[in-house]
Amino acid sequence: MEKDNQHIILKTKDLAIGYASKKERTVIASHINIELCKGELVGLVGVNGVGKSTLLRTLTNVQNGLSGDILINDKNIKHYTALDLAKVLSLVLTEQLMSKNLSVFEIVALGRQPYTNWVGNLSENDISIINTALTQTNVWDLKHKRCFEISDGQLQKVMIARALAQDTDLIILDEPTTHLDIYHKVSTLKLLQKLAKETNKTILFSSHEIDLAIQLCDRLIVMTPNHVVSDMPCNLITKGVFDSLFPEDLIAFDEKTGSFRVKK
């Protein structure tokens, strides 16, 4: 691999994910070795139920891995305090906001929580970071709107702005394109691509939009029940990884267009 000069943000060593209770261990995926570099846009794809969410939950320390290590900036994720982790890793989740009465500015401002004092007062520096985040995600005009007044697509951008304001090396998004129409799916993913380039942050997202991910991502992590592969999209196509992604009875991967076709 010729990326010695690139800084590795996230790295897993022989990671196994799944659920462990007192009686049994359910392994969902094992021998996961992935490396995410600075400024990369990375898509995580795989069939429903293959364990994408479990992987994301493990990478974000919401749940524990079964074995192996996760290193963020060469430091084991287990050695981070919650607050320190919040300074290197931010999330965009699928869950609904509890209060939609917050203004867009207030939501984005909450991204500064790990840095503010005990009452959460914003410094000038905080405010300028918030404003930059609002501009970068093209939601500056909405900043005084309340969240129930804006569309789902806009809200998704606001949540991305919030993650940007958290000022972390790594942003992880859980299915950021669900509930959006094709135009807004593309616009959200294009935005992520632009942000990865401009801010040099590493952005990892899970998605079902495999064809869009192939076109836009620097790297894809493909999860199948047997193994987890991470490579550049074109290499993955040549290796024929996508052919085995889904059961072959209904759809087939077309290498020329890089998309799935319904079998007639």
Binding site: T60, V62, T81, A82, L83, D84, L85, A86, K87, L89, S90, L91, L93, E95, Q96, L97, M98, S99, L102, I107, L110, G111, Q113, P114, T116, W118, V119, G120, Q166
Partner: peptide, 20 residues
């Protein structure tokens, strides 16, 4: 006050912001 405001985002977001 600060943790209450963070909780407005929902518990998982609050956790990701480093809130105990």
């Amino acid at each position: 006050v600060k943790s209450l405001n963070t909780m407005l985002l929902g518990e998982n977001y609050a956790k990701s912001l480093g809130l105990n």
